[in-house]
Design a protein around this nucleic acid. Structure first.
Lengths: 202, 202
DNA sequence: GTCTATACGCGGATAGAC
DNA sequence: GTCTATCCGCGTATAGAC
């Protein structure tokens, strides 16, 4: 077994806490306590709280998006890449709340510098992959813009899942991954088939 | 002119600060200072911070969503209700960062009790209205689920607007309201036209 | 690497005068 | 209604021993 690897343990604990409660609501004391150490030791491994946050984000985002490349290549032949992506992304969001919540936190509160940093270090690749996937279809507008729609649609469904049960007509099943996955795919297929380029598609 | 109305002033200031920095990062002192008063006086008007937050949210959400009913009715005839809604919602999100950010904050961090409270007091009506709008078209699946897609799609575009300029191919114009509005409408129209119920629509 | 001890300001919240 | 004064715990961060 590998050495205890304190840094890794800290990042795991921090990612869980930051994701569920937010950066401000989680103190260095909280993280240290749950790691089984002291705040002082955290400051040995990370210069300050901001650096711990950045390291946590980079760790989680890069780790979780790394499989995408493989997933897209190794899909079973009959399914199309868009389906593979949607199912992977929906599955990730709904099953991995650490990833999901940290991502939404950054989109909401990440300052421009942090977003730029994260884009360059981790998001560029996966976003380019998704753009290339949708570019394989005959998109009604610019593929990049359409990629944003695809990601946004899934993200939106995930976010609304929490409030949906309280809204009129909002059955709980509308907020489950299988439904979201099937439904968004259905919508996207209709868009992809309805265009004037229909003949060239597929 | 109406009386100074301290409560209202507090809510305005609080909504601005909470929206931009988050609840934890804004102290009662911060709010008091910007209001031109003291923390003690805030506690005269609101039991504690949690109550101030709830009052702020209810204030902002109900105020901003109130016009929706009128907007949907008074649309110029040639445009369809979905277009009216999309343009209103996109415009609201992109022009009113207080509303937009508080909404996203709640979807992310609102506990179930607060989401239930907000749903019952302010979101039920607008959501039902939107559901009814989309139900006027031949939606491919359940109208409620489709309403979630419509809201989610717009919300997703708005959220990604902040990071888009840093991503490959992410031109700044893709993140502006006019583009988002036009583009999402284009997508939705394709979905609405592609269904097997096409003949019955419109 | 990890600890103990500690500095010091800021946080929510209340008592009681005006 | 609004203030001054205050309590007290918790926050980040560091010094220095082990």
């Amino acid at each position: 077994m590998p050495a205890p690897d304190t840094q890794g343990v800290i990042l795991e604990v921090a990612s869980r806490l930051f994701a569920s409660r937010g950066y401000d609501a989680v103190s260095m004391r909280d993280v240290a306590m749950e790691v089984g150490g002291t705040p002082a030791n955290l400051y040995y491994h990370f210069k300050d709280k901001e650096h711990l946050i950045r390291a946590t984000l980079a760790h989680v985002f890069s780790q979780r998006t790394a499989p995408l490349e493989k997933v897209l290549l190794s899909g079973s032949r009959p399914s199309d890449p868009l389906e593979i992506f949607i199912e992977w992304f929906v599955g990730l969001l709904f099953s991995d709340s650490v990833f999901a919540r940290l991502l939404l936190r950054e989109l909401l509160d990440g300052d421009s510098a942090r977003l730029k940093y994260l884009s360059e270090t981790v998001f560029e690749r996966p976003f380019a992959l998704i753009t290339r996937v949708v570019a394989g279809y005959s998109t009604p507008t610019d593929p990049v813009l359409f990629a944003v729609s695809v990601i946004g649609l899934v993200l939106g469904h995930f976010q609304l899942a929490g409030i949906l049960p309280h809204l009129p007509g909002g059955h709980a099943e509308f907020a489950d991954p299988a439904t979201v996955s099937r439904h968004t795919l259905e919508l996207l297929r209709r868009i992809l088939q309805a265009g004037p380029h229909e003949r060239d598609a597929h």
